[in-house]
Design a protein around this nucleic acid. Structure first.
Length: 339
DNA sequence: CTAAACCGCCGCCACC
DNA sequence: GGGGTGGCGGCGGTTT
């Protein structure tokens, strides 16, 4: 993983990348990422807080990277032609390119977002859209996974995108472990919409309290059929009000949330057990395999058994430890389908 | 994979 | 009269 920095670097997003990709959090015998800090010119890089960090590698290091993380930076060289060219070259070669926060502007300048859906910090979304009309800017999500090009929203959404990438590479279980060590929730649902309308805690937030009971109940009963109306009743609200409050507080709709939790559960079951797929389907509440496959494919971009083949953990199986689980390359991920 | 039934979401509006 | 609520119905996504 090459983390691209430049003068005017915003330390927070950079630190998030370090936190996720830099520390070796792997279990023994499992390969983790190897992270390099890359700058247009190796040496000291000024952060926008005034202190400096040292980048040991120059742009050349991008040519060997499997993943490139573009950090937000205000300095002119962040958008300089050599940087843009190196990014284009890497992407053409098949590297996975991701931006944090306003790092999206660098990807946009490189033309890598043209014709794609992308996001950035909500306060800069209009500017991005105006400056690059060919980009379909979605200011309402935490991140956009475009397959080989990924973008994330402001500051803390970097955590969400980085963990998402870990989930793609190592599976939901490892991603959840990483999240736990970072002491953040494993998966934040909903978009940044929730932060636009209500910059500070408000009545909408109080309403969120009323969800928690019914939602923890839902998490424990994912395998049972449950309708939105059930959840509404458990929260002592009319379905209409429940849906409305739910959206205001979480950014998603109730049904979408349930589906997502079910997919997460299915991922866990596939990774950590030998449960046959049709049983996984019923245990995760999808009922039929057709249904499981439909939603699994949509969220994870692979089918259930392919996912298991890549991520299933073999507990005491290979004690030789020599076989490192490699970071899957592009084979696991198909490019996004236009639908 | 397709078709058709079904259900959730959301805008609208009357109501509290 | 402001701000929230709940019912209705059409649309589009989900399930069969």
């Amino acid at each position: 993983v090459a983390v691209l920095v430049a003068d005017g670097l915003s330390p927070f997003e950079f630190a998030v990348a370090c936190e996720v990709f830099g520390y070796d959090r792997a279990e023994p015998g499992v390969a983790w990422y190897r992270m390099l800090v890359v700058a247009p010119a190796p040496g000291l890089v000024r952060t926008d807080m005034g202190f400096r960090i040292e980048a040991k590698h120059g742009l050349r290091a991008l040519s060997g990277a499997h993943t490139i993380v573009v950090c937000p930076a205000t300095g002119a060289e962040a958008m300089s032609e050599p940087v843009l060219a190196a990014l284009r070259r890497a992407h053409r070669r098949g590297a996975r390119v991701m931006s944090l926060c306003t790092g999206a502007f660098t990807l946009a300048a490189a033309g890598l977002l043209d014709g794609r859906r992308a996001t950035t910090h909500w306060a800069h979304a209009t500017q991005l859209a105006a400056q690059y009309p060919r980009i379909e800017v979605d200011p309402g999500v935490l991140y956009v996974d475009g397959g080989t090009v990924l973008t994330s929203a402001g500051s803390a959404a970097s955590v969400d995108l980085c963990l998402h990438v870990v989930r793609l590479d190592f599976g939901a279980e490892v991603a959840a472990t990483t999240a736990r060590r970072m002491v953040v929730p494993p998966h934040r649902d909903g978009g940044q919409a929730q932060f636009i309308d209500q910059p500070f805690a408000d009545t909408a937030d109080m309403g969120a309290e009323r969800f928690t009971d019914s939602l923890t109940w839902a998490l424990e009963h994912l395998d049972e059929p449950m309708s939105v109306e059930d959840l509404a009743r458990r929260s002592a609200m009319s379905p209409r009000t429940f849906a409305r409050r739910f959206r205001a507080a979480t950014g998603t709709t109730p049904h979408r949330w349930i589906v997502r939790q079910r997919v997460l559960l299915a991922q866990r079951l596939l990774e950590t057990s030998d449960t046959p797929v049709d049983l996984v389907a019923s245990r995760s509440g999808f009922g039929t395999t057709t249904n499981l496959r439909y939603h699994f494919q949509r969220e994870v971009r692979t089918g259930p058994s392919a996912y298991r083949r890549t991520f299933q953990v073999r507990p005491e199986a290979d004690a030789d430890g020599g076989q490192l689980r490699s970071v899957p390359t592009t084979e696991t991920k198909e490019t996004i389908s236009p639908g």
